[in-house]
Structures are given as structure tokens and as C-alpha cells.
Design a binder for these strands. Structure first.
Lengths: 225, 225
DNA sequence: ACCTGAACACCGTTCAAGT
DNA sequence: ACCTGAACACCGTTCAAGT
């Protein structure tokens, strides 16, 4: 039997293993002991490559943020922001633990470089098409949609292991006569009334087009200032 | 000295104490041992009134959901949904731990009655003004804004104890020449360029007005179907 | 320089034992 | 019926000790 030639432990290898574990078994399964085990090492060894667990989580988030697309300057501001938002959503869906981390950062006293660079880019592109006031609120609307929709979507996700329970509960709790709208809505979800990818883009377009309309001075769009 | 006449422990008293603790010290400070201590009882006693910690968290969330306003039938669908969304946002802000719970429920196999009733109401009101297809996506856009914006807002919250660190880091990380837009944006936040309550309503109005426009067959609003 | 074992202060939860 | 003490199987993290 071949002797297992263990590769030397590095911060990068620790991060990758942690991401793989979180992707597979969920972020709640990621413990220092379990991660060490996965790497064939005692948990305490990890502290040679990572300051602590928060540092580990921060590092994992950083990798995911780098997976998000930043279109070049040739693209129109609205299309560019749309592309970025869609790729951000996709990255968060690939790593279901990441959006949670992005929105409730383990250590509030650290901001990642990549986060600031993305923010700067988004603000610059918004400014290409909108006034100061709309840029300010537009960033909030855009960012909150990216993370908010993703989290909301995850909370409604039906995973393979709870689909049976949910189906049974569904019939018990949503009787068609008592909750007709909800029954219909859930039915629409199950019959593919709208695909999941389009749901994200639907809200995204409401925001982007709404912003553009406001900039054009559309009086029909009422927003207090 | 007066003998402390301890009120009998009930599920309700446990829930209230847990909420008070989470409101004060954050959800991460809420442990069964700490909660028992707060109630003058051993942690194990709590299991007589609560099935387990997930049940406790579910109960806490339920109380918060009941704090959200459901306007009567006299109100126009758009105004009614707006009022509900604003009151939901306010409830989540009063209990900063609740939105996290709503969006990543501790036990996925349980849906709260109040959640279904609210969903039914929202769908009915949306249907008062919109077509089937818009109701379907409209609910997603609305719900994801309520929880998503709140979570996003919380992640950017500056609390009293980290304001010093952030101010220092701010100057170090956002040099005006390197990140001019971000610098300006953060400055706008600090000088009250837009108040926080309006930020939520800004995005809310983009969604509600956008939905209405789509229903009126506005060709300028491009959304794939 | 990196890894380890033992230890510390925490968790949620069970269960037999008390009243 | 309700509360408790001891215990179990977990956490993150420290630190002296090994190589």
C-alpha cells in the first residue's frame, strides 16, 4: 500500500478544503476539528495558517467575491450592472454559505479589499447614468436585492432530504379552501410557472429600470425624497 | 430582605426572556444556560416548556411576525402592501435577530401559521391590482426586499462599540484619491444625505410602482418572461 | 517552523434522580 | 408535574511540549 505523501499545509489549501466542506455539508458542519480531520491533521495545526475561525470564514468569503464578474468599460452602465448582479447571484448560489457570510460578517472590524473595489465600480457605473441622489439610493437597492433575494431564495429552497416532509406538510397546512392563493402559488412553483433564474432578474430589472425612469424625471414613479 | 417570589415558569415567560436577552446582547449571547440563569433556573428546566432550542427560536420569531401590521380591506392594494412592508421592516429593526431567523429558519420542516396567513394576505392584495404572472414574481420581489434590505442594512450598521475601529479603518482604506466614489458615498452616509427609513421605502416604491407599470403594459419596462 | 496532547471554558441535550 | 446534577458529545482556542 502506497504511503500517503501529504502535501504541505498552506493557507490556500486550508481555505479550499473549508470551502469544499461547506459546499458539501453546509457551513454548520464546518468546525476546526472536522476541517483538520479532512486535511489529515489535528485541529490545532490549522492555527498555524489561519488566525482563528473568523479569519478562515473571511478568507472563504473573499474567494467567492473574486468569482464575481466585473464587465469592462465598453458595456452600457445598466447592462454592466445587470451582468455583475447576475454573476454575483450565481456565485452565491454555487456556495450557499457565502451570502450569509457577506451579510452578517463574522468580524465587523474587517472590510475586504475586494468589497471596496466592487463598491467603487458599482458607484462609478451608476454615476454614468444617474444623478447623485439616485446613485446613493440605487446602490442600496441593488446591493440589497443581490444579497436579499439570494437569502430569501435559499430559505425557500427545497432540498432533497426535506422534500418529503414538506410535501406532507404542504397538504396538511395549505388546504385549497382555506388558503387558496398560497395553494395556487406553491402549485405554480412546483409546475415551473416561472424559472428560478428569472425570478432574480425580474426584481433586478424592476430596480434598474425604475432608477432609469426616475432619472428621466418620470412623474408617475412616486418616491419620497 | 424580601424573599424573591418567583413567578411560575411558562412557555410565554421563557419566550419573553429569550427575546429580551437577544434584543439586548444579540442572538449569539442566547444560550440555554444563560437564559436559565436570567430566569433564575437551571438550563435543563427550560426543556419542560420548550422542546429544544430550535423550538425556542421558532417561538421567538412567531412573536415578532405577530407584531407586523395587516391593513384592513378598505386600503388600496398598493398602499396596503406598502404599510405592511414598512411595519414588517420596523418589527425586524426592533428585534435585530428576527430577520436572520426568518430567512434561515432553524428547522426547515416547520412553517408557522402566521407566515402562511401573511402570505395569503399578500397574494390576495397583489391580485387586486395585478395579473397572475405579476403576482407570482411580485411576491418574490416584495418579500425579498423586506428581508433582504433589512439584512443588508444590518450588515452596514455601525454600532456604538465598533464606530471607533471603523472610523480609523475608513481613513486607512478609503483614500479619496483611490476610491473617490466610495469615499463620497460613505461621507454621504455620515452627513445624513438620505435618512435610513427612506432607504427602505425607496426600494419598496421601485418595486411596487414597477409592478403597477408592468401591469399597465408599459413597454419601456423590459423584463424577460 | 510546524505539529501535537492536554486542558479550559463553553455549547445543546439526555436521563435518572429528586420533590 | 416540574426541577436538578451529573454526564455525554460536541465547540473554539491556548499553550507548553515535542520534532
Amino acid at each position: 500500500m502506497a504511503r500517503k505523501a501529504r502535501k504541505p499545509l498552506t493557507r490556500d489549501r486550508v481555505l479550499r478544503a473549508a470551502m469544499a466542506l461547506a459546499d458539501k455539508d453546509g457551513i454548520e458542519a464546518l468546525s476546526m476539528r472536522r476541517l483538520g480531520q479532512e486535511l489529515g491533521v489535528e485541529a490545532m495545526s490549522l492555527y498555524n495558517h489561519v488566525a482563528n475561525k473568523d479569519d478562515l470564514l473571511n478568507g472563504m468569503l473573499e474567494v467567492v467575491l473574486h468569482e464575481m464578474e466585473i464587465p469592462g468599460d465598453g458595456v452600457h452602465w445598466k447592462a454592466a450592472l445587470r451582468l455583475h448582479a447576475v454573476s454575483a447571484h450565481a456565485a452565491f448560489r454555487r456556495h450557499s454559505w457565502a451570502c450569509q457570510l457577506a451579510v452578517s460578517p463574522p468580524s465587523l472590524d474587517r472590510v475586504l479589499d475586494v468589497q471596496i473595489r466592487q463598491m467603487e465600480w458599482k458607484l462609478a457605473r451608476l454615476r454614468d447614468g444617474l444623478s447623485d441622489h439616485l446613485v446613493y439610493h440605487g446602490l442600496h437597492a441593488l446591493d440589497s436585492h443581490i444579497t436579499g433575494f439570494t437569502l430569501w431564495q435559499q430559505s425557500h429552497q427545497i432540498t432533497a432530504d426535506n422534500v418529503g416532509d414538506l410535501a406532507a406538510q404542504f397538504l396538511r397546512m395549505f388546504p385549497a379552501d382555506e388558503y387558496p392563493r398560497t395553494y395556487e402559488h406553491v402549485e405554480q412553483h412546483m409546475t415551473g410557472f416561472g424559472s428560478d433564474t428569472n425570478a432574480f432578474e425580474f426584481g433586478l430589472d424592476l430596480i434598474l429600470t425604475g432608477l432609469e425612469r426616475l432619472h428621466e424625471g418620470d412623474p408617475g414613479v412616486t418616491v419620497e425624497r
